[in-house]
Design a protein around this nucleic acid. Structure first.
Length: 910
RNA sequence: AGGCGCGUAGCUCAGCUUGGUUAGAGCGCCACCUUGACAUGGUGGAGGUCGUUGGUUCGAGUCCAAUCGUGCCUACCA
């Protein structure tokens, strides 16, 4: 074995051997554990969020696999309609091809080509972090099988009248020229103005003033609305105003929705271009005047001068015109919220269009019920509120998109606009008895990507195709995902599974936090603060990192800042830490759903941990080189230390189980870290050096094998590599760790005082070390120590282990049978024993005395506090007796400490 | 505006559900140590009035109320 742990040399080879040996396919077993991967975008690359999520999943998957279950981790990717289409369009454009010049078929072919080219990137990256998904079952939402299910489900929902076609106001992205989901619209606060416009009232000299942030929509106004109880305007209700420039008459109506306090208390209504106005328009039966073309230009319904101009460009021009006409009364600065398309950054326009909708009322109710009935549970629980809130306010889902990459809607129109839904043209003609003479053509729209994602938990598990697979693995045990995706995925998966399989898709939903940069900012290409998980695994030079971070920035003037920060935070780039360290870090940071601030120093710590584990294994291999290990069991004549370490290891095993059930991966990681480093390496391995007999050798091997197993789900690569060494040495018989069994508790000892006995010995060693360090006595100088032991069991333990105590604190110990008072010695006093240290040489006496005084004062204050409790009648009467006893024994202990300190003080003062 | 989090050591975070050790960890810092698994290491240490104020209680980092700071989500009054 190498002296140093080098992840680069082992990780890829190990992953290949797992794949070659088909380790990720489910084993045959009665009990199962299954999980579907929320499909990542096929055009994307792996980011920290994926890496975090995959780590959590993989820990659970590997653990359950080691428990001997049939484990299926179902992977795959999502076709991401709009995002993918944009990528391909941009590629075509930059190679000089106008995407719009291609036919639908040709364009789709281009997308498939691109998918073949880039679609595997994220998969190979996922493998690089060790994900043990069953790649032989990899699925893609546009695959034939999945597409078939999508189509059939659409038809079924249509036949059940849950999907319908309607002319409604939708969020329209004028750049993409498609409807987008309101989840894909970001509301941004922007500086704007509140424009006060004067409309004159027909057949009178009077006028009315409306306030608006979007004056350009006035071309489409079809009413003015005031509050019915507004004294200022009451008399005007029912009158008409004349729309300036247009000379169109529109009524003044009234509705309680109008806030009298805001603006002028007078609202212009543009039903075809505003969601609230739409509702008012419906309620009051107003005209709906659409003033917009699909590309965002104004149509012939507006003043001639403005026809063909982009609605986002005309505001200034229009305001000038209105000012000339005397229509503009004032312009008040105002912060308003503007809806912006997530993908394009374009202002989203509400637009009246024909779209396909899914009625969500009943589906949502069932989705709420299963969570209320605890059939589906969120971890952490508070996310269910978010879930309820969304489902309880849900509107019908607009499922059609005006793009070409995606599942084409299985609907056909005849020349009169009648709609027919079926699997194909032939099916339609039979189903609806349409003769061949009638021309029909398929709808050009495709389905929202999330429609197919909603089916993912059952469509990927061979629903209606392979009952054996489906019945075995569905419902899945768990969904691991980010909170930002609760609506996109979680809610819709639940609703669609209930509808079509009659069952929930998973019974637990673990919601993890966001991975942020070290300052807590969201990682984003446009801010230039992204850290790629692959770069943490394999390392990256500063130059390459700078190049990565300065491409894709929002603006050029950010560049120098990004360069400065990157140089400050990563002066020599990023070192190679390996996938295991990254995974351990994610586990350690995964507390109760909190966001993670990504800290490289922390990763380094876990890389060091890997090195520690590596070297502990190496030590045991070297130490046991001559030992013929064949019995996988505990020797009868184990020392208390042998028993103690197995006892501690047992509780780590128990912890692991507990922390998988309550999803506390941070505590799991800490439990392992603390045990391996602070107990096993710092104490047991050091102790073993002083008692390197066959029993200990046996116990070293027995324990390290168990440790490697327990560590494997978190850090699979290094443990599998160490396992190979163990296999070669005959420590284990199973060739691959991934296929081995997770340790169960062995409940090693019936001697329940083992831990406290070992603790005593550790305490003696630590006391000596501490005194030595405080007095500045060189580590190499052997101190003469006498010990008087009152407790019989301790007396036995010490006499049997004097050489060990000597070696670990570099002293020469002598057992004495009575108290010794001697000025040459300082006393370290405890309940059960007193230590006398012969200190010949002292350094900086004054500083030492000051420290001792300070410490004595501290301890006195603590005693005062305890006394206050003990002297309090209420405390004695009301507090439970074990608490009182605890306080009493603490007091004794602290008093002993003070005595020891006084002895030290006296010795020093002499 | 409403909802949900967060505020504990220089930094990143546990601990709060179920109140009771001298409030913990990693990193960083200081001193010493190139001892045969590991300097990606060892030994020891310094560092915290648990955001603030009140309340409940024998006892509050933990429960309650208020308040300040901060982050996110939802909805928006045009």
């Amino acid at each position: 074995m190498n002296k140093q742990y080098k992840p680069r040399e082992i990780e890829q080879k190990i992953y290949e051997s797992w794949e070659k040996n088909k380790c990720f396919s489910p084993k045959d077993s009665a009990s199962k554990f299954s999980i579907v991967l929320p499909p990542p975008n096929v055009t994307g690359t792996l980011h920290m969020g994926h890496a975090f999520q995959h780590t959590i999943i993989d820990v659970l998957v590997r653990y359950h696999r080691m428990l001997g279950k049939s484990v299926l981790w179902q992977p795959g990717t999502d076709h991401a309609g709009i995002a993918t289409q944009l990528v391909v369009e941009n590629r075509l454009s930059s190679s000089g091809v106008d995407p719009k010049s291609l036919s639908r078929e040709k364009f789709i072919e281009e997308v498939w080509n691109w998918k073949e080219l880039s679609g595997n990137t994220i998969i190979s990256q996922t493998k690089r972090i060790g994900s043990s998904a069953d790649w032989s079952r990899n699925r893609f939402t546009m695959d034939d099988g999945l597409s078939e299910i999508v189509k059939n489900i659409f038809i079924d929902l249509y036949d059940k009248k849950l999907i319908y076609r309607g002319n409604r106001l939708v969020n329209w992205d004028i750049k993409l020229q498609t409807a987008v989901s309101d989840l894909e619209v970001i509301n941004e606060e922007k500086d704007g103005f509140l424009y006060h416009l004067i409309y004159s009232i027909k057949d009178s000299d009077e006028s009315i003033v409306v306030a608006t942030t979007r004056p350009e929509t006035f071309f489409g106004d079809t009413a003015i609305c005031v509050n019915p109880s507004d004294e200022r305007y009451k008399k005007l209700i029912g009158r008409k105003i004349v729309l300036p420039m247009m000379n169109r008459e529109i009524p003044i109506i009234s509705d309680e929705i109008v806030d009298m306090e805001f603006g002028t208390g007078c609202l212009k209504i543009t039903p075809a271009h505003d969601f609230n106005d739409y509702k008012i328009g419906k309620k009051h039966n107003l005209d709906f005047i659409n003033i917009l073309n699909k590309d965002g230009t104004l149509n012939e319904k507006v003043d001639k001068k403005y026809v063909g101009k982009n609605i986002h460009d005309v505001r200034e021009e229009l305001i000038t015109d209105l000012e000339h006409l005397g229509v503009l009364r004032e312009k008040v600065p105002y912060k308003n919220v503007v809806p912006v398309g997530e993908r394009t950054g374009e202002i989203i326009e509400p637009l009246l269009t024909n779209q396909w909708f899914m009625n969500m009322t009943d589906l949502a109710k069932e989705g709420v019920d299963v969570v209320k009935e605890k059939k589906v549970n969120f971890v952490p629980k508070h996310w269910e509120k978010i879930y309820f809130n969304w489902l309880e306010n849900i509107e019908d889902w607009c499922i059609s998109r005006q793009i070409v990459w995606g599942h084409r809607i299985p609907a056909w129109f005849d020349e009169n606009g009648n709609v027919y839904v079926g699997t194909c043209e032939d099916n339609i003609r039979t189903k609806y008895k349409i003769s061949d003479s009638v021309k029909i053509s398929q709808d050009n729209d495709v389905l929202d990507t999330w429609f197919s994602s909603a089916l993912w938990p059952f469509s990927t598990l061979d629903w209606k195709k392979d009952d054996a697979i489906f019945n075995k693995y569905f419902p899945t045990n768990l969904l691991v995902t980010g909170f930002d995706i609760i609506f996109f995925w979680v809610a819709r998966m639940i609703m669609m599974s209930l509808k079509f399989t009659g069952n929930i898709p998973f019974n637990k939903i673990y919601i993890h936090g966001l991975v942020r940069d070290s300052e807590g900012k969201k990682m984003s290409k446009s801010i230039g603060n992204v850290i790629d998980p692959l770069d943490v695994i394999e390392g990256i030079s500063l130059d390459q990192l700078l190049e990565k971070r300065t491409t894709g920035l929002l603006s050029d003037n950010q560049k120098s800042n990004v360069i400065k920060k990157t140089k400050r935070d990563f002066p020599s780039g990023i070192k190679e830490y390996g996938a295991d360290a990254l995974r351990f870090n994610f586990c350690a940071m995964a507390s109760t759903g909190r966001d993670i601030n990504f800290d490289l120093k922390r990763i380094e710590g876990y890389r060091n941990f890997c090195n520690k584990l590596w070297n502990a294994s190496r030590f045991i291999i070297l130490a046991c080189n001559d030992y013929d290990y064949k019995e996988n069991q505990i020797s009868k004549d184990s020392s208390i230390f042998d028993k103690w370490i197995l006892y501690k290891l047992d509780s780590v095993v128990a912890d692991f189980k507990k922390y998988t059930t309550n999803y506390r991966f941070d505590l799991m990681a800490n439990s392992i870290y603390d045990f391996v480093w602070n107990e096993y390496c710092d104490w047991y391995l050091e102790i073993s050096k002083n008692q390197m007999n066959d029993t200990t050798k046996n116990n070293l091997i027995f324990s390290i094998v168990r440790i490697i197993k327990v560590c494997h789900p978190i850090i699979p690569f290094i443990t599998e590599d160490i396992w190979k060494e163990f296999y070669d040495k005959g420590f284990v018989t199973e060739p691959m760790l991934i296929n081995s069994n997770f340790p169960s508790q062995i409940r090693i000892s019936k001697e329940y005082d083992i831990e406290s006995r070992v603790l005593k010995i550790k305490e003696i060693i630590k006391k000596v070390r501490k005194t030595r360090a405080e007095l500045g006595i060189h580590p190499k100088e052997i101190i003469d120590v006498k010990i008087f032991v009152k407790d019989a069991s301790l007396l036995k333990d010490i006499s049997e282990n004097t050489s060990l105590v000597n070696a670990m604190s570099n002293i020469k110990i002598e057992m004495v049978s009575q108290e010794e008072r001697n000025v040459e010695f300082i006393d370290l006093i405890d309940d059960d024993y007193t230590l006398y240290l012969k200190i010949r040489r002292m350094i900086d006496t004054q500083a030492e005395l000051r420290k001792i005084e300070k410490r004595i004062d501290e301890l006195r204050r603590i005693i005062e506090k305890i006394d206050m409790k003990l002297n309090n009648k209420d405390f004695i009467e009301r507090a439970p007796s074990d608490i009182i006893n605890q306080n009493i024994s603490n007091k004794t202990k602290i008093e002993n400490d003070i005595l020891s300190l006084r002895s030290l003080k006296n010795t020093l003062s002499d």
